[in-house]
Amino acid sequence: MFQYKEYYADKRFSVFLKKMWILDNLANPERIVDRQVLPNGCFNIAVIEGNGLIIKHMGWEKHLLTGSYFCGQMTQAISVELLPYSKATMVQLHPWAPAHFSAADMSKFTDQIVPLEVLESGRDYFSRLPGRSHKEIYLTFVLAFGPMMREDSTQELIYRAAAMLVESNGNLQVSKLSDYLGCSSRHLQKIFKKHIGLTPKQLSLILRLRNTVDSIAYQQQDLLSMTDLALDSDFFDQAHFINAFRSFAKVTPKRINIPNYFLSFKK
């Protein structure tokens, strides 16, 4: 049987590691097909074992074999096919985390999945990850990346800015954000593009649309109207909202079928 599991990071390590989410098909002889993963503003490190996954995204297709991979920021939903007798353990990092342990230009990895070795951080640990339990993988990342965490004015600015956007679910104007932080919007855009792979505006949009999906999936009231969804996402033009949502999730808000998506459990 296929299982989806989640484990949140301990508070002391949650400054850079958000959670682990697991697609476990190791005991299942059947493929898990036609599933989607939505962007949420986080990076992921995928530890694959077994026959692997087939990923389709923005015109490219990759078969992720046993190994460890770095998943850059995604701007659209990606299609996932989990092969029989396979497992993917995903280590989810906050958007500001890579800036604290890697000097790599994150804009090169936007909408891309690459071998983890390209980060050139903790290389000696990576080959030992596939086949280990989620607790062992978690501990490996804590031991490998925890000591690497560095902080200077740029890293601190990225952390504060991204954390504020996440806290507001993207409903914070970039101009107000830069004013609050005492920097120009242009400077904020430059460091975001390099260290997060997205501009502040792009990250805000992803956060707002992902929050909309959660509103649809976990609504506490009758079905929300399109107007309500648009306004809750800080859109005042319904057509603009629908087009943005379609680009993000590949379907309109009315046509989204929640079981087709791997979504976080409601906390």
Rank of each mutant, 00 (worst) to 15 (best):
K108V: 07
K5I: 08
G41F: 06
H57G: 05
P130C: 13
Y85M: 13
P253H: 11
V174P: 00
N28C: 13
L209V: 10
F236V: 08
H100R: 14
N44I: 01
P39Y: 05
V114S: 04
P147Y: 13
F101Y: 14
V251T: 14
T154K: 15
I78Q: 00
L157P: 00
D237L: 14
I242Y: 08
N171K: 15
E156M: 08
L209G: 08
L203I: 02
A103F: 07
V118P: 04
R132P: 02
L177T: 12
I216H: 05
E30P: 06
Q76C: 12
R31D: 09
V118K: 00
I45C: 07
C183D: 03
K18E: 12
L181C: 08
Q220Y: 03
V251F: 04
N243L: 13
T227H: 10
Q221P: 00
P84C: 13
Y125R: 07
A9R: 01
P200E: 13
G59D: 11
Q36M: 15
T212S: 14
F245A: 10
I54W: 00
I242E: 07
A104W: 02
K250P: 00
F236Y: 13
L263H: 07
D24W: 01
D234C: 15
M58D: 13
F265I: 11
L205C: 10
F265C: 09
D111L: 12
Y218G: 09
Y125H: 01
G182T: 08
N243R: 15
Q76H: 12
Q202V: 09
I258R: 04
D105Y: 11
K19R: 15
I206H: 02
M148T: 06
W60I: 11
P29S: 01
Q112P: 02
R128M: 10
T154Q: 14
K19Q: 12
R12P: 02
F262Y: 11
L231K: 13
